[in-house]
């Protein structure tokens, strides 16, 4: 299998959207669990667990709509894995950087970390719905330039067909022939 430049460009762009979405989701996820450390308030935990994954993954699906549904599923899985990984890296960052030795000395409690684990389970199905929904809407509302050209070409050809058919109906003596394509 060979990868042309166009495919690589599209895949890179999809990865960029995925990474951007993951950063946004991880930030809201982390900050909603630990609002006291954040310079900005981001709202309730429910907002970060329910509303935000759908919104972010919808935008990712919208922007990467040229991919098929199986690829969108992979994108949503990647989105969840990266965002949860970033959030948990942030939680354990004092231990990773050696500021604290024991996990018990982390500013977060065991309960908070457990509820983060359980909350992250909710993100997957919502992200999946969001990306597929975004892809569906994006394919209609934001088709790529290539797809638009293809659609224009199809419209053009259909018009030619209609014109040819109309002409044939007007002049029954003309030999029946298909228009050149």
């Amino acid at each position: 299998m060979t990868l042309d430049r166009e495919s690589v460009y599209r895949a890179s762009l999809a990865l960029l959207w995925t990474f951007c979405g993951a950063i946004t989701m991880a930030t809201f996820f982390f900050v909603s669990f630990f609002p006291e450390y954040s310079p900005f308030a981001v709202g309730e935990i429910g907002f970060s667990i329910l509303f935000l994954p759908i919104t972010v993954s919808f935008v990712v699906g919208l922007l990467a709509n040229e991919f098929d549904v199986p690829v969108m599923v992979l994108i949503s899985i990647l989105l969840v894995i990266i965002s949860v990984a970033i959030a948990f890296l942030a939680v354990y960052s004092p231990q990773i950087s050696g500021i604290v030795v024991d996990a018990g000395d982390l500013p977060s409690t065991d309960e908070q970390r457990m509820s983060m684990v359980f909350s992250s389970l909710f993100i997957m199905p919502l992200t999946l719905i969001g990306t597929v929904l975004g892809k569906a809407v994006g394919a209609v509302v934001l088709p790529s330039e290539e797809e638009l050209m293809e659609r224009r070409w199809l419209v053009e050809r259909t018009r030619e067909w209609h014109a040819a058919l109309a002409k044939r109906d007007e002049d029954p003596e003309e030999p029946k022939s298909r228009p050149e394509s």
């Binding site: 951007c20 900050v31 450390y37 954040s38 960052s93």
Partner: peptide
């Protein structure tokens, strides 16, 4: 996402500083 990354960095910094204090 850039704004989010900056917010995350600031939050993690404060979280780390709190851990250090503790």
């Amino acid at each position: 996402s850039v704004f989010s990354a900056v917010t995350l960095a600031m939050t993690v910094d404060m979280y780390g500083a709190f851990a250090e204090t503790k």
